[in-house]
Design a protein around this nucleic acid. Structure first.
Length: 277
DNA sequence: AGCACA
């Protein structure tokens, strides 16, 4: 009974885009701005909690030390949601690496087959040095060439996106990486987990009822408050447990309500828990 | 980017 299969979620309806029709089919994100010592596992951890995540690839471009990644989602919608929530996030405070995320030029060719690894590494560097990277949770299909051929991010077009703008020299990476900082434990929005969610990017006509219908599908949902504060409405949704709030957030992140007109919902943990009243 | 209620 704990499993409530939500009846057809709104976000399954393909939101017909306004301008760029060809990008609607893209469900893969192109990620740059990564530190050169990034691990595939880190990329996977970055995206794995995003709703609709399917799989990702880390790719050593062979162009200097630059590393890029591709994250594939079940649909364009969830890819966009992940894009919006992670783009611009500081990936490594030590090096001030900031994530650059955009839609990939084309989708990753290969869907992950069930039970196989959720991430994979493609290494285009000269096989000399440290190519002994962790090779994913399952390396069953090391089709590096095929995978890279599917995306071609390194064919010149995206090079300009990879430039760490200020002062981050790729050259002196030797002394910069002294410690193993595997603890990339950043709260993605800079907000710590809370059983109350803050929901923004709602349409001007969003109603409390509309939101309740959606939210009440998720276990632990307790209360909702919508307020307009003059401008666009925002909402606060309270749950019994943080974990339940998290589940709802992950499931609903980026999804559209009928009243949505500016994109899907942006959901974060609220800065403070809803007052019980 | 936008976080209230007490």
């Amino acid at each position: 009974m704990a499993h409530q299969q939500p009846y057809e979620p709104y976000y399954l309806h393909q939101p017909v885009e306004y301008g760029f029709s060809d990008r609607n089919g893209i469900n893969t994100l192109f990620v740059s701005g990564l530190p050169d010592d990034v691990k595939a596992r880190e990329i996977h951890n970055l995206f794995r909690r995003r709703p609709g995540f399917d799989s990702c690839q880390l790719k050593y471009t062979g162009r200097g030390n630059q590393v890029v990644a591709f994250a594939t989602f079940v649909n364009h919608q969830s890819a966009m949601a992940a894009l919006h929530s992670l783009n611009g996030v500081k990936f490594d405070p030590q090096t001030s690496s900031v994530l650059h995320i955009e839609l990939a030029r084309s989708n990753s060719r290969r869907k992950r087959k069930p039970g196989s690894g959720a991430y994979v590494v493609i290494d285009k560097r000269t096989k000399a040095a440290d190519d002994a990277q962790e090779n994913s949770s399952d390396d069953g299909e090391s089709e590096s060439d095929e995978l890279s051929g599917g995306n071609k991010p390194d064919s010149g077009g995206n090079a300009d996106l990879l430039i760490p703008q200020s002062g981050e020299t790729v050259g002196d990476s030797e002394h910069a990486v002294a410690t193993e900082n595997e603890h990339t434990e950043k709260t993605v929005d800079g907000v710590s987990p809370c059983s109350t969610l803050f929901i923004a990017n709602l349409g001007p006509n969003c109603t409390e009822d509309e939101m309740k219908q959606v939210l009440s599908q998720y276990p632990g949902f307790k209360a909702l408050k919508v307020r307009a504060r003059g401008g666009m409405p925002v909402a606060f949704a309270d749950f019994e447990e943080i974990e339940q709030a998290t589940k709802a957030m992950e499931a609903l992140q980026g999804s559209w309500l009928q009243s949505s007109d500016r994109g899907g919902m942006h959901i974060e943990y609220a800065r403070s828990k809803m007052r019980k009243s």
